[in-house]
């Protein structure tokens, strides 16, 4: 079973643009998905002018909102379930 890895940038620019909210929704999602969802904080994803940023399974997403992040992660979790 594949897992989804979400790395949320906690750099100062992303913190100012709402990284904490991204972390909170992802952690809430983790309560239902457990080990299949890995959540990490990272120092910088190199796109400070376009925060808040997160990397999901290696792909960088900028100007994220909580809804966008949830949609992306949920889609991946659903895909993986199908592949299983």
């Amino acid at each position: 079973m594949q897992s989804v890895e979400v790395e949320i940038c906690a750099g100062t620019a992303c913190h100012l643009m709402g990284a904490q909210g991204l972390l909170d929704v992802t952690n809430t999602l983790k309560q239902t998905h457990g080990q299949r969802l890995q959540v990490k904080l990272t120092h910088c994803l190199g796109a400070c002018a376009h925060g808040p940023n997160a990397r999901i399974n290696g792909t960088l997403y900028s100007r994220l909102t909580e809804e966008k992040l949830l949609a992306l992660v949920n889609e991946l979790l659903a895909d993986n379930r199908g592949a299983r």
């Binding site: 940038c9 750099g11 100062t12 620019a13």
Partner: peptide, 17 residues
Amino acid sequence: FEEAACMLVGKGVNLAS
């Protein structure tokens, strides 16, 4: 704190790194 953080970012300083 908000203004200070914006000044840090404006100068390119990332406290997390």
